[in-house]
Amino acid sequence: MSVVRIPPVLRTEAGGEREVEASGDTLRELLEDLSSRLPALGSRVYAEGAIRSFVNVYVDGEDVRTRDGLDTPVREGSTVILLPAMAGGC
């Protein structure tokens, strides 16, 4: 199991949770697992087999775009951060 950190704008889709658990050996498997259990959340970040372009995904602090994308390996206990941009300075 890995911990998936949910950004504040997507907490409604995650039942209000700040973190949820998901499993998989790769990011793809993990996002598939997440989507099957929390479909509304899943579709926000992952659609048609790709990570949505406005969401950054970090596995253990590293942007998966600079690693192997959806094939990035996820270890037991890894932390996955889903991060869309926030504009507010208000």
């Binding site: 704008v9 997507l10 372009s53 950054n56 941009a85 208000c90």
Partner: peptide, 25 residues
């Protein structure tokens, strides 16, 4: 480089819409 594109408006509420803890800024 960090955010090549902004999120859709429904995923980018402002503090005026969603609020902010006063001490956070």
């Amino acid at each position: 480089c960090l955010f090549p594109e902004p999120p859709p408006p429904e995923l980018a509420p402002s503090c005026a819409e969603g609020g902010v803890l006063g001490v956070l800024p």
